[in-house]
């Protein structure tokens, strides 16, 4: 201990990690290139951390999340066939109580994902039990072997679930929605964005490459947000506004512990309310979603929907019945 203490005194950025208190996911995976490009800041926003004004109440009225339960169910000529239960739900909160989603605000079902490398894939349909989805595997992917084919299939499953969420997002109009995940594909087919805010818990895409940005964002303290920057994602390169927000102090854990990235619609009216939106998110930290291992980033209403979706999934025993 004395050894690390000595090192820390001369290196303020050094953090000794408390073992067992974090996940591998929290460890930084961003580019080590200090000259890499940072996303552009929006308006007058600057990268430095800013304290979010405290709020006792949250203005979010609706919450949305998706869930999936995937099992490799068969192999055929080297290709893996997946059975997945995919679902998404949008729930309203009234008088501090989460209401069970109405049938209109639930999407879900059992899908069989059959890679297109299997020629007679159309024979795998089982009406009344699952919907057979053909996963398009491009020739170049197929040429890279079955590992790649499987990656493509898994990605297709994720996209299918995203598609269910998008369907619900497109239906949402009134209220203030907090959704788990990005706002990619949230852009309405016509008109303005509804009041929708996305929370990104995983940091597979990290928007701080320069030394300056990295120090500003990783140095955020509890209840502080970064400046708002612009993010372009998805195949259409739709842009959204985004900022980092620290929900929980990292202390002796990796810097991304307790850190979320928030996405808001790229419109001025939302930019003007960014502090208010951040304060609502901070108010949602109670109750905690413990003992979920992602409790540092998972807000309780989102956790609630996850539990709801999980309750509608077939059990493990039920999934194994489909192998019959």
């Amino acid at each position: 201990m004395a050894f690390w203490k000595g090192l820390k005194e001369s290196r303020p950025g050094l953090k000794v990690l408390r073992q067992g208190s974090f996940k591998e996911d929290d460890l930084p995976r961003f580019s080590s290139d200090p000259n890499a490009e940072d996303p552009p800041m929006v308006g007058d926003e600057t990268p430095e951390g800013k304290p979010v004004p405290p709020a006792l109440e949250s203005g979010f009225t609706h919450f949305m999340d998706g869930a999936q339960k995937v099992r490799a169910i068969a192999e055929y000529e080297g290709a893996t066939i997946y059975l997945a239960h995919l679902s998404a739900a949008l729930a309203k909160r009234e008088e501090r109580t989460m209401l069970t989603p109405s049938p209109d605000w639930y999407r879900g079902g059992l899908f069989l994902f059959v890679p297109s490398v299997i020629e007679d894939r159309h024979e795998f349909g089982r009406p009344g039990t699952w919907v057979s989805e053909s996963v398009v595997v491009r020739d170049e992917d197929a040429a890279r072997g079955f590992e790649r084919v499987r990656e493509v299939t898994v990605k297709a499953i994720d996209e299918h679930r995203n598609g269910l969420e998008t369907q619900l997002l497109q239906l949402f109009r009134d209220g203030a929605l907090l959704t788990d995940g990005t706002l990619v594909n949230a852009k309405p087919r016509s008109g303005d964005y509804p009041f929708v805010v996305g929370i990104v818990k995983s940091h597979s895409h990290q928007y701080f490459n320069s030394h300056e940005r990295r120090r500003a964002i990783l140095g955020l303290r509890t209840g502080e947000r970064s400046g708002v920057f612009e993010v372009a994602r998805g195949k259409d390169r739709d842009t959204v506004y985004s900022f980092y927000l620290r929900l929980v102090e990292a202390d002796d854990r990796p810097a991304l512990f307790g850190m979320i990235r928030v996405e808001i619609p790229p419109e001025r009216k939302y930019l003007d309310r960014v502090d208010e939106i951040a304060s609502w998110i901070l108010a949602e930290r109670a109750p905690t979603s413990r003992p979920d291992p992602r409790h540092d980033k998972l807000l309780y209403p989102i956790h609630w929907i996850e539990e709801y979706l999980r309750s509608r999934q077939p059990t493990d025993a039920g999934m194994s019945l489909y192998t019959a």
């Binding site: 949250s58 501090r96 109580t97 989460m98 949602e284 109670a286 309780y300």
Partner: peptide, 9 residues
């Protein structure tokens, strides 16, 4: 005395 925005079910 704190009143979180969501009540546990």
């Amino acid at each position: 005395g704190a009143e979180p925005p969501t009540l546990r079910h």
